[in-house]
Each structure stands twice: as structure tokens, then as C-alpha cells.
């Protein structure tokens, strides 16, 4: 499998999910913060998908089973805690991944060197909110803890070996867990204890098996291009 396609799909799908917050975030400032992050990810997706083929064809003309993103990034936004939990899990992973890629000499190294700075900011944003929600009110603590628990079962897939990638993903699992545990500890939250993968979800996104909400997200993302092929601004 093409590693650039897999990482590009991760970035593209998460950008689309974060973009759904435009006009809907709890406050205007968060609207801008989340869509800023979405735009960074969209930029990464464009570079990565262009390494594989035509970016528009890949983004707008593939069916759900042809996408290679992990299932974590396609999970619905839920409430603000769900979004922040997803951001925390994914941005810590992406920062480790891009950091390792940037040090290597693969064709993805230049992209990773640029993206790792963007992702460091995404991780900081998620961390700041995790601290405030976890150590905030009783309700914010409860919701953040629940969100962390709900998404936990999608985190194992992040560290499945990825063919053609210059980084050993399983080797990132321990540092990832250590960093997550550090943030959660400061936020007075518990690291979830359940399984980090299930029989039906382990590594499935990378093989084109996606969860049910993904189809609806894709329909919205691809509608315009499919209805008006070649449309442009």
C-alpha cells in the first residue's frame, strides 16, 4: 500500500471533520482555531495525495472503501470534548510520526519537516484544552473522560506497521502512550484502560474498512465535485 496515500487520507478526512465546526464551534475564536488546523491538514493532504496521483480525483472520485485513513480521524465531531480527545490522540501521533519522518531521508522528509511545526501547534491546542476541560468543572471533566474512553479503541490502529513508510510505527506506540499519560495526568484525567483496538476495527481503516458515519461525511465532501465535475472558483 502507498504510505503517502494513507497519511494523505488521514489529513484530508480530519480536515473535513474539523471544517464541520465552521460556524458551529462554542465560540467564534474556536471556530477560527479549529478551521485553521483544518487548513493546515488540507495543505498536508494536497502535498501527500499529489505524490500519489491527481489530488482532486483522489479526494472527490473515490468510494469509501478506497480510502486508507485510520478510523480515528473519521469519527464524528460529537461534542467539543470528543473533538478535543480526537485531536489530542491524533496530533501527538502525527507529531511523533512527522518528527521521525523528517529525520529520515525518504521522499516524505521535506513535507514532514514543514508539517511537524504545524502539528506541534495542533498538539499544543489540544493539550491546552485537555488541561482546561479535565481540570475545569465537574461536567467538563466527566465529558472529557468519557470522550477519551469512547475513542480509545481507535488508537491501536495508528501504530499498525505501514508498508512503504520509512518509520516503524509500532516503535512510536510507547512514546505516544507516555506523552498522552503525561497530559492526562496534568489534566486530572485517567488514561483509558479498555482495549485500544477491537477485532473488527484493528487496522481496518488502512484496508478500506470504515465506520458507518464515514459514508455520510464523504457524501457531503464529494457532493459538489460529483454534481458539477471540474467546477472551480
Amino acid at each position: 500500500m502507498n504510505a503517502a496515500l494513507a497519511l494523505g487520507d488521514d489529513a484530508l478526512v480530519l480536515a473535513q471533520r474539523l471544517g464541520e465546526w465552521a460556524g458551529n464551534a462554542p465560540v467564534l475564536e474556536e471556530d477560527v482555531a479549529l478551521t485553521n488546523i483544518a487548513l493546515d491538514l488540507l495543505g498536508q493532504a494536497r502535498t501527500l495525495l499529489s505524490l500519489t496521483g491527481d489530488e482532486d480525483e483522489l479526494a472527490f472520485r473515490r468510494e469509501a472503501h478506497e480510502f486508507r485513513n485510520v478510523q480515528l480521524v473519521e469519527q464524528p465531531n460529537g461534542d467539543f470534548a470528543d473533538t478535543i480527545a480526537r485531536q489530542l490522540y491524533f496530533s501527538v501521533y502525527q507529531e511523533l510520526l512527522y518528527g521521525a519522518l523528517a529525520e529520515g531521508g525518504s521522499e516524505l522528509a521535506p513535507l514532514a519537516g514543514k508539517a511537524v511545526k504545524e502539528v506541534a501547534y495542533h498538539r499544543d491546542h489540544a493539550e491546552q484544552w485537555t488541561l482546561r476541560l479535565g481540570d475545569g468543572t465537574e461536567e467538563s471533566h466527566r465529558r472529557m473522560q468519557r470522550a477519551l474512553g469512547t475513542l480509545w479503541r481507535f488508537t491501536g490502529e495508528l501504530f499498525e506497521p505501514l508498508e512503504g513508510l520509512a518509520v516503524e510505527l509500532p516503535a512510536l506506540h510507547a512514546p505516544w502512550r507516555e506523552r498522552i499519560a503525561g497530559v492526562l495526568g496534568r489534566a486530572t484525567l485517567e488514561i483509558p484502560e479498555g482495549a485500544d483496538r477491537t477485532a473488527w476495527s484493528a487496522g481496518a481503516g488502512r484496508q478500506g474498512v470504515h465506520t458507518e458515519p464515514f459514508g455520510r461525511m464523504l457524501a457531503e465532501m464529494q457532493y459538489l465535485h460529483r454534481a458539477h465535475p471540474g467546477a472551480s472558483w
Binding site: 477560527v32 501547534y121 499544543d124 491546542h125 491546552q128 482546561r132
Partner: peptide, 11 residues
């Protein structure tokens, strides 16, 4: 203040 700095960066 910390979040204000970050929001300012974005805005």
C-alpha cells in the same frame, strides 16, 4: 491569558 495568546495567534 494563555488561551488568549493562542487565539490571537490564530486571529
Amino acid at each position: 491569558a494563555e488561551m488568549a495568546l493562542r487565539n490571537a495567534r490564530d486571529l
